[in-house]
Computed example of a mutant assay.
Amino acid sequence: MRKARLILLAGLGTALAVTGPGMSSADPGTTAVNGAVVHTADAPEPGYWTAERMREATPLDLLEATPADLSGEVPTGDELTVSPTDGHVSAVPEGGGPWTGGGDVVTTAGRVFFTMDGRNASCSGNAVTSTNKSTVITAGHCVKYQGTWHTNWTFVPGYHDGQSPWGQWTATETLTTPQWEASEDMNFDVGAAVVAPLNGKLLTDLVGGQGLKFNGAYNQVMYSFGFPAADPYDGSKFIYCSGTAFKDFLLTQDHGLSCDMTGGSSGGPWFYEFNESTGTGLQGSVNSFGYVFLPGTMFGPHFGTDAQNLYNTAQS
């Protein structure tokens, strides 16, 4: 087994090196609940996410992550670079580009905004069906990264060019898998948020919610959605990719899909059984990362039992 260095790239202006596993933090606001890690979220001040701040929020795609051992041959030698949907991808073979099909996905998906180390950043997310009608699924690095939970966490469904047509939904709790919380294992890069009611309404009562699929098959037709904000995108458009996904040959548990989405799309949903007419499907992954040596491709974690535990904890 050769040692390969994993590097996450997050566009917040400064590269931060992390040297070793064990990123779990002793945050008193964090607890382990039923196979998930739950953090009491720090809410933004009212009116914090102005149109200008949302437009200027930088995609989370230029921070360095943990070294890791990977089985098999490393195509680029001993240094393997990995980035969460970071601009090193460049092709959509089947469909793709701006989503113009309408349907439920236009309101269930949205941009995620948060503050990390004093800098405003963005990801993507998706509202899902849930008991509490208030659950958003995103990537793990979109709720916690480099040992720090993000603050000012807000979900904006149906975002468009600084506008919040369905309102801004503030997280009361953010959650991730134990594996991501402990060592930022890319196979478990899944996050969630429980958002507070807005004007007396619950999230999915207003925007709808997508179903989920756990332990789904590999090599299936999948659709991926997000709000890429790194060049050549600017975060203003809702972008999708589609095609037959494949199983990652290095991290072994992840889905791969040809796609040109860039930073800021992290956390956007991947769907099985997506219906273009209704804009509905079963979410089985999220936009997570890409290999620099493999342009034109992005990857997302397979939703298995750990992702299911995360979802069940969030919705309860």
Rank of each mutant, 00 (worst) to 15 (best):
G267V: 11
V195E: 00
L282E: 09
F271N: 07
Y240C: 09
G158Y: 01
W153V: 13
A196F: 02
E173R: 10
V194E: 08
K213H: 03
G279M: 10
D248H: 09
L251E: 12
E273R: 15
D260P: 03
T278R: 06
E184R: 00
L198D: 15
G209I: 15
L257H: 09
P228D: 03
G226R: 01
Y223S: 14
G268H: 04
V194Q: 15
Y159P: 00
A196L: 00
Q210F: 06
H255R: 03
G281A: 09
N219Y: 09
D189L: 06
Y272E: 06
N152M: 07
W180V: 03
D189K: 10
F227A: 08
Q163C: 03
Q179V: 00
N187G: 10
D254L: 14
T174P: 03
T177H: 05
Y233I: 05
S266Q: 01
F246L: 05
F188M: 00
D231S: 13
W166S: 07
T154W: 05
E276A: 14
D234W: 05
M261S: 12
L257F: 07
E273K: 15
P269D: 07
G281E: 05
P232V: 03
F225M: 13
G268A: 13
T154Q: 04
G267H: 01
N275H: 12
G200N: 02
A230Y: 15
E273H: 14
T172I: 13
P197V: 08
G226S: 08
P232F: 06
Q210R: 11
T177C: 06
T204I: 14
M261P: 02
L282I: 04
G256Y: 09
N152D: 15
D248Q: 14
T174A: 05
N219C: 06
C259R: 11
N275Q: 05
T154I: 07
I239M: 13
D254T: 09
G243F: 04
G216R: 12
F274M: 12
Y159E: 03
S164M: 13
D189W: 03
P228N: 11
L202E: 12
N152I: 01
Y240L: 05
V194C: 08
P232L: 06
T204Q: 05
Y218C: 01
F274Y: 15
T177G: 08
G167F: 13
L212Y: 07
W166I: 04
F214G: 05
P232C: 05
T262G: 08
D234P: 00
G243W: 12
M186N: 11
G191H: 00
N275A: 13
A196R: 04
L206H: 15
L206I: 14
Y223Q: 06
A196P: 00
Y272I: 12
H160D: 10
P269T: 08
A245P: 05
G256K: 13
V195L: 02
K247D: 02
A245C: 11
M261I: 09
A229S: 07
T262F: 09
V194R: 15
Q210E: 14
L198E: 14
L198P: 11
L175V: 12
T244W: 03
W270T: 08
A230V: 05
K201T: 08
F271W: 10
F271P: 02
A171D: 10
K213L: 13
V221W: 07
L257S: 07
D161F: 04
G209Y: 10
Q220V: 07
F274T: 01
G216H: 01
G191L: 02
